[in-house]
Design a protein around this nucleic acid. Structure first.
Length: 477
RNA sequence: GGUCCCAUCGUCUAACGGUUAGGACGCUGGCCUCUCACGCCGGUAAUACGGGUUCGAAUCCCGUUGGGAUCACCA
């Protein structure tokens, strides 16, 4: 009880960091932070064929983006700890709890297919178990000797007690014929030696757990507490995969999502605390608890994620949103290079007048091009509807009034519009829209006063004169 | 197929033996309005099914059905 909590996130570097992994990492992180424990990152790269440095970097990048900081220096890499596993294999061999097996992969595969065909459970038949596997000239794998009778109980903090008949478990390979240890063995050795108190992981590992427990026991190590969290499913209720859209966490960064939205969304997928939907990082650390995690799998719902993202854009600090937008603007080719620090105030103004209406940073960037490009294209439909001869006088009038104005504050701009409204005895709707089209090329933009104010005198006059020419060209046709 | 897990609105969830079964996303009607939005007010919609236990069941037990996971010299 007084023991210091230690948890880990142990991804395998065989691809990008996906959403399910991130949620597992998040749960571990929150659990550790809440209890003042340690959260460690361990890279499970015992499969040298599939593990890549790029994947390790992707994991690190994802964790950093989301602010899931881990303790205890550089991540542990299993591939650097081979002698440790070897030593443990030797121990089991010496105790008679493991044995060499010389069945070839082809033979195994053949028997597996045969078993499946006959409707039997495709498990290893144990033919090398009692020393019969000493066929010379063949490289042996090492198998763990599972008890043939009895039951093994998994005490799970989410699912309760689950019991397995040992007879259902076969003798799994703990060391490959090339000498590399396998996952199910390394997790046990590492979790034990690294002093993990709680194993929080996806429930796709539930079926591995009894065999792991058996190995803890054989090795004489304490068994940690387990918490198997339900999977994340796609809209068709099958395991979330590429078929359901983006599953790489960094793809969401590129799509203009905020890390806090991602965190908030993911934590609510399978976990809840009353009716609360919005959680700050601090609240999460305070309120997170394993009890709040449900037992059933959850379907990933992009609409709700989008809603949360919108919420965080709406309520976020404009300066911060601006610096994130700066990167997206470049990513989308709207800016050729990021704005320097002294021009960030301008982006912040653009953000302020848009943050309540844009759901992603990408959307904000793409609908803000007229703030960043010098020249705009006028949408044909919008031009046809609003840049008409009837509006010519209006625009010319405004050009004169704007030209005479030096202070382009929102208040002064508003005053001018009101004056025009009074003179023409018309509503704002009649005059705002032509100006909007003149200034943005389209019919969608922030409030007209803010728009004019932010764009500034030079650009406003330039574009309005362009619009007047546009009207002239059209009517000349 | 064997084993294991799971089951409240379309989706995420609340209700841990007594509620008109609550909230959120989505969808939708209205209001607001200079465009698009935001916001506000309202609506839609669920305890998979069948047996028990109990004065009383979404909640506990059993079965059925349905879904998921897993059965590699992957992790």
């Amino acid at each position: 009880m007084t023991e210091k909590i230690r948890v880990r996130f142990a991804p395998s570097p065989t691809g990008y960091l996906h959403i399910g992994g991130v949620r597992t990492a998040l749960f571990n992180y929150l659990f550790a932070r809440k209890h003042g424990g340690s959260f460690v990152l361990r890279i499970e790269d015992t499969d040298v064929e599939r593990s890549t440095d790029e994947s390790i970097q992707a994991i690190l990048d994802g964790m950093e983006w989301l602010g899931l900081d881990y303790d205890e220096g550089p991540p542990v890499r299993q591939s650097r700890r081979i002698p440790l596993y070897q030593e443990h294999v030797e121990r089991l061999l010496a105790q008679g709890r493991a044995y060499p097996c010389t069945c070839s992969p082809e033979e195994l595969e053949e028997r597996r297919k045969q078993a499946l065909k006959e409707g039997r459970t495709p498990k290893y038949d144990g033919r090398c178990r009692e020393g019969g596997g000493a066929v010379h000239g063949r490289k042996a794998v090492i198998r763990f000797k599972t008890p043939i009778s009895g039951t093994t109980e998994v005490v799970d903090m989410i699912h309760g007690i689950i019991s397995f008949d040992n007879s259902q478990l076969d003798d799994l390979i703990i060391r490959r014929s090339d000498g590399m240890p396998t996952y199910n063995f390394c997790v046990v050795v590492d979790d034990a030696l690294m002093g993990m108190t709680h194993i929080i992981r996806g429930d796709d590992h539930l079926n591995n757990t009894p065999r792991q427990i058996l190995m803890y026991q054989a090795l004489g190590y304490d068994i940690p507490k387990f918490a198997h969290v339900p999977m994340i499913l796609g809209s068709d209720k099958t395991r979330l995969s590429k078929r359901h859209g983006a599953t790489s966490i960094m793809a969401y960064k590129e799509m203009g999502y905020l890390p806090e939205a991602m965190i908030n969304y993911l934590v609510r997928l399978g976990w809840g605390a009353g009716d609360q939907e919005i959680f700050s990082r601090e609240e999460l650390i305070e309120k997170f608890s394993l009890d709040g995690i449900g037992k059933s799998p959850a379907v990933f719902n992009p609409e709700k994620l989008l809603w949360l993202n919108h919420h965080y854009i709406k309520t976020g600090d404009p300066e911060r949103i601006a610096s994130l937008l700066n990167g997206i603007l470049v990513q989308k080719g709207i800016l050729t290079e990021p704005y320097p620090g002294e021009k960030m105030g301008y982006i912040a103004e653009v953000v302020k007048c848009q943050q309540e209406k844009r759901k992603t940073l990408v959307e904000m960037a793409e609908l803000s091009t007229y703030f960043f490009k010098r020249d705009i294209a006028i949408d044909e439909k919008a031009g046809k509807k609003y840049l008409t001869p009837e509006n010519l006088l209006l625009l010319e009038d405004l050009i004169l009034k704007f030209a005479a104005l030096d202070d382009f504050s929102v208040e002064k701009i508003q005053a001018i519009f009101e004056k025009v409204m009074a003179e023409k005895e018309t509503g704002l709707g009649k005059i705002a829209q032509p100006v909007r089209v003149a200034l943005t090329g389209g019919t969608v933009s922030p409030g007209i006063f803010e728009l004019v104010s932010i764009l500034g005198k030079e650009l406003v006059l330039k574009r309005m004169k362009k619009a007047v020419e546009y009207i002239g060209n059209r009517s000349a046709d």
